[in-house]
Amino acid sequence: MGRKQTARQVLTELPLPTDAQLVGKVLETRGGGVYDVVYYDKLGNEQKTLISLPTKFRKLIWVKRGSYIIFELLDAKTKIEGEIVHVLFPEHIKNLRNQGLWPSHFDTSSDEDPSSTKPDEAEQSGSEHSTDDDDLLMANPNHQAFTDDEEDD
């Protein structure tokens, strides 16, 4: 499959995990397309494993800490126990929840989608914590600070 076809597939298809596939959360990147992943087995036990990203997805999809993925466990007895089949975006997660295929272990308050907050809550939180963009930027110590009086000279 070509690069454009792979990109189109990743962005447009709504994946559903098969019986051999699992949903996991990326805990850490190890480099070289290898990731630490936490998932829950069929019995509900938390498992951690190393998963690789196939070369067809490298430089096309960026997987970061906290991303959700669909992966398959491999039969090989190596340190890398699985391979990523699909990286899940928010619309994919919403579809899995609607289908009833989303693992309930991943439904915690810290994993909630920020867009799912109610408008009343967003207005209240916005008024309590209003920040200016200038407050978020630190001053560059390599530049001199000038006032309007000094610039006129």
Rank of each mutant, 00 (worst) to 15 (best):
27 L>Q: 11
14 L>A: 07
41 D>W: 01
32 G>R: 06
15 P>E: 04
153 D>A: 08
72 E>N: 11
148 D>Q: 12
113 D>G: 02
115 S>N: 11
95 N>H: 15
48 K>F: 01
144 Q>Y: 08
42 K>E: 14
68 Y>K: 04
23 V>D: 03
114 P>L: 12
54 P>T: 03
85 V>P: 00
128 E>W: 02
7 A>T: 08
62 W>R: 12
130 S>D: 04
108 T>N: 10
2 G>W: 03
123 E>I: 14
72 E>M: 06
108 T>F: 04
38 V>K: 10
125 S>F: 10
92 H>V: 04
84 I>P: 03
25 K>W: 00
74 L>Y: 02
134 D>Q: 09
84 I>W: 06
3 R>Y: 09
112 E>K: 13
19 D>Q: 09
96 L>W: 07
72 E>W: 00
7 A>D: 10
64 K>E: 14
140 N>C: 13
17 P>R: 02
63 V>W: 02
27 L>A: 03
114 P>C: 02
25 K>Y: 01
43 L>P: 00
15 P>W: 05
14 L>N: 07
127 S>M: 09
139 A>Y: 05
148 D>V: 12
147 T>K: 09
93 I>W: 05
40 Y>C: 02
25 K>T: 06
111 D>P: 00
139 A>D: 14
54 P>N: 03
95 N>Y: 15
114 P>E: 07
32 G>F: 09
30 R>I: 11
41 D>S: 07
153 D>N: 11
12 T>H: 10
121 E>C: 01
55 T>G: 10
79 K>C: 01
151 E>R: 14
85 V>T: 12
54 P>G: 05
110 S>D: 12
49 T>A: 08
73 L>W: 01
3 R>S: 15
145 A>Q: 13
138 M>I: 06
149 D>C: 01
37 V>E: 05
63 V>M: 06
143 H>Y: 15
77 K>F: 08
17 P>A: 05
149 D>W: 01
75 D>F: 10
139 A>N: 10
5 Q>T: 11
131 T>F: 13
30 R>E: 13
151 E>A: 12
2 G>K: 10
29 T>C: 08
35 Y>G: 04
66 G>V: 04
152 D>P: 00
101 L>T: 08
35 Y>E: 04
84 I>Y: 04
109 S>N: 07
50 L>N: 11
151 E>S: 07
94 K>N: 10
45 N>H: 11
66 G>R: 09
151 E>N: 02
143 H>A: 08
44 G>D: 06
112 E>W: 02
81 E>C: 06
102 W>D: 04
35 Y>C: 04
68 Y>M: 10
125 S>W: 07
88 L>Q: 05
118 K>Q: 10
43 L>C: 02
110 S>Q: 12
142 N>R: 09
118 K>E: 12
147 T>F: 06
13 E>N: 11
